[in-house]
Computed example of a mutant assay.
Amino acid sequence: MSTNRQPAHLEYVGGKSPRQRIWEKIRELKEFGLPRLVRALPGTIHKDTTRTYVTSLAKAGFITLDAETKLYTLTRDNGVEAPKVRKDGTMVNAGSGQENMWRTLRSAPNPLGYVDLAYLASTEQTVVAPAAARDYLANLEKAGYLACHAGKYRLLPEHNTGPRPPMVQRIKQVYDPNLGAVVWTDAKDGDDE
């Protein structure tokens, strides 16, 4: 199944995805028509992308459309982070594990092992597997974000870059949307070819 989406390090211009920029503008406007929203966004965001996301948000109940005026109104403000919704309005949980782990690492007063991190980052909606926590910690350590002693990890204060979680990408690199930059790439991965 093709999503027509680029990897995060290419899609997140200035550290923000198109959906994030659309959501921020919706929160700013509160009430809008689709043409006005499209005009208010940077020219790099295609109108079809905007239309699709607005339709998805409406199906999910974040915004409502007045059929008479053709104006959308923000009805459920979920905060600064853009809601992750599919075209049919259902919520997407992909990436929630990394978000939860990053939030846990940022707030943990003591170093954590991967089993502790998996337990503390799990919620009713998102269960973090210990193997996923181990992988996330290992990649963040390689990227220089964590110090490890006796299998316990702690976030280095200078690498507490912001609320968005550094993303471990399939192409074996870590992208930090807070910085808008790739912060680590597995150099040996390219040598194997």
Rank of each mutant, 00 (worst) to 15 (best):
Y119R: 15
P166L: 05
D116C: 04
D189W: 00
S122R: 00
Q98V: 03
L71P: 02
R154S: 14
K30V: 12
I22D: 14
R19I: 05
M1G: 15
Y175D: 01
A132D: 02
P83Q: 03
T126R: 05
P35R: 14
A60H: 04
Y145L: 15
P166Q: 05
E81A: 13
P165E: 14
E24V: 05
L74H: 04
K16I: 05
L29V: 11
R170W: 01
D186G: 00
G14N: 12
N4L: 15
A138G: 13
R103Y: 02
E11Q: 14
R134G: 00
L41F: 11
I45H: 05
D77S: 09
K59E: 12
M101C: 04
T3L: 14
P7R: 04
R39F: 08
L65V: 06
H46Y: 09
V128I: 09
A138Q: 11
G61P: 02
E24L: 13
G97N: 02
R164H: 12
V128D: 03
G97D: 01
S17M: 13
V127M: 06
V182H: 00
Y12M: 09
K172A: 02
R51G: 07
V174G: 00
D186S: 03
G89S: 12
A133M: 03
L10A: 14
Y119Q: 12
T185R: 00
A181S: 10
N100P: 01
E68Y: 04
S2H: 09
R39L: 12
I22S: 13
A108W: 01
A187L: 07
D186L: 00
A147Y: 09
L105K: 02
W102V: 09
D77I: 07
F62A: 07
E141L: 12
A8E: 14
W23C: 11
P177E: 04
E28V: 12
G15W: 03
E24T: 15
L120V: 04
K84T: 15
G97E: 00
Y175V: 01
Y136C: 07
R51V: 05
L137T: 10
E31R: 15
S17F: 11
A40M: 06
P166S: 04
H46A: 15
R36G: 15
R39K: 15
Y114L: 01
L57V: 04
A40R: 13
V115Y: 07
G79N: 06
P166I: 02
N110E: 14
A8Y: 12
T3Y: 09
R86C: 03
A181T: 07
A121E: 03
K84M: 09
E124L: 00
S2I: 07
R36F: 08
Q169G: 02
Q125R: 11
Q173D: 02
R170S: 10
D192A: 06
Q20L: 11
G79S: 08
K87G: 08
D135R: 06
D189E: 06
V128C: 08
G15I: 05
K152N: 13
E28R: 14
K30C: 05
Y136T: 09
T64L: 10
E193S: 02
M91T: 13
D88F: 06
A150T: 13
M101D: 03
W102L: 08
T126S: 04
L10E: 14
T3W: 08
